[in-house]
């Protein structure tokens, strides 16, 4: 009885102490989690929206397509029977390889033409055009992009056909006429025309930042303008060249309106083939998915290749 009061208090306090201990422990844990979340919050906040966008509209569809591509002969509405590589093996048939090769040729050819034509224009715009007119000229050059590309392609029909504008002019001048309509050349013309503004824009941006003092230094060291161009200007603008080529290559790889309208009877491209698989009579989503994966692969290869050139020795560029 002597210690009953104390005992009582102690007895009362014991659970309280225990409780306090538990609460403290829980608080510590929560604190840790909270701090961890806060550290993540900023990057999540900044990257979150884009990340979700990418996840939903790129990653998930790609995973889906990958799955579909591994189902031979999958038709919409059918349950997935089994997996196999048949779709991919089918692509190796000469018929389809030819389509791939044609698309790659069109894309590569267009890229080279855009580069050859676009570089002088961008060079002149960035380094030689009078400063006052520069912006205006740039806008004028980009103007065609504001019109529908389909309309522009139609315009090329009017120009290129046998009794079209170009031949009228050529005939008036007594020159031999051309018959490029409905041939692969017409496709090159149409695609180059469509994508040239992109190439010019990108090259212009790169050339504008060219340090002219470097060209003076080259001249000072004995380089005539041609040597200075190849040894200084081109290496300095290589990232821009790579970026321009990449953009044109990838977009022209996927274009099939120009081949359809301007090309001849043999103008099947990979994008059209994919379209036929999904929305044409074939309804072979498995094969279409496999073709899509191959297209993605081609694009990725192009990106890897051109990035390698465009990003050479990144630490050497200030």
């Amino acid at each position: 009885m002597k210690n009953s009061g104390f005992d009582r208090i102690k007895a009362e306090q014991k659970p309280k102490k225990l409780l306090a201990l538990v609460v403290n422990w829980l608080q510590a844990i929560f604190d840790l989690i909270w701090r961890w979340l806060s550290n993540l919050a900023r990057p999540i906040g900044l990257l979150g929206p884009a990340g979700i966008w990418l996840l939903l509209l790129m990653v998930l569809p790609m995973l889906l397509i990958t799955e579909l591509s591994l189902v031979p002969g999958l038709k919409p509405g059918q349950p997935i029977a089994g997996y196999g590589l048949l779709n991919y093996l089918r692509i190796l048939e000469p018929t389809y390889l030819q389509v791939l090769q044609r698309s790659a040729t069109f894309a590569t050819g267009t890229t080279l033409l855009c580069l050859l034509l676009g570089f002088p224009v961008a060079y002149w715009l960035a380094l030689m055009a009078p400063k006052r007119w520069r912006n205006l000229l740039l806008v004028l050059f980009i103007l065609p992009l504001w019109t529908s590309s389909l309309l522009r392609t139609y315009a090329w029909i009017t120009l290129l056909r046998s009794s079209g504008v170009i031949n009228l002019v050529l005939g008036a001048l007594g020159l031999p006429t051309q018959s490029l309509m409905n041939t692969p050349w017409a496709v090159y013309i149409g695609m180059t025309y469509s994508f040239l503004p992109y190439m010019v824009l990108i090259l212009y941006a790169s050339l504008e930042r060219l340090d002219l003092k470097l060209l003076e230094a080259a001249a000072d060291l004995g380089a005539n303008p041609q040597i200075a161009f190849w040894r200084v200007t081109v290496p300095q603008t290589l990232p821009g060249i790579a970026a321009g080529c990449l953009l044109v290559f990838v977009t022209s790889l996927g274009d099939f309106v120009v081949p359809t309208l301007l090309g001849g009877p043999s103008s099947m491209t990979i994008s059209r083939l994919i379209y036929n698989q999904f929305l044409g009579v074939a309804r072979n989503w498995g094969f279409g998915s496999a073709l899509s994966m191959v297209l993605i692969l081609m694009v990725s290869l192009a990106i890897a290749l051109l990035l390698k050139y465009g990003d050479r020795n990144p630490e050497i560029y200030s």
């Binding site: 018929t95 009877p265 036929n276 698989q277 074939a282 309804r283």
Partner: peptide
């Protein structure tokens, strides 16, 4: 359908 598509690809390619 598959046959049609294949022939068509061959013809247009």
């Amino acid at each position: 359908n598959a046959l049609y598509d294949e022939y068509w690809t061959k013809v247009t390619s």
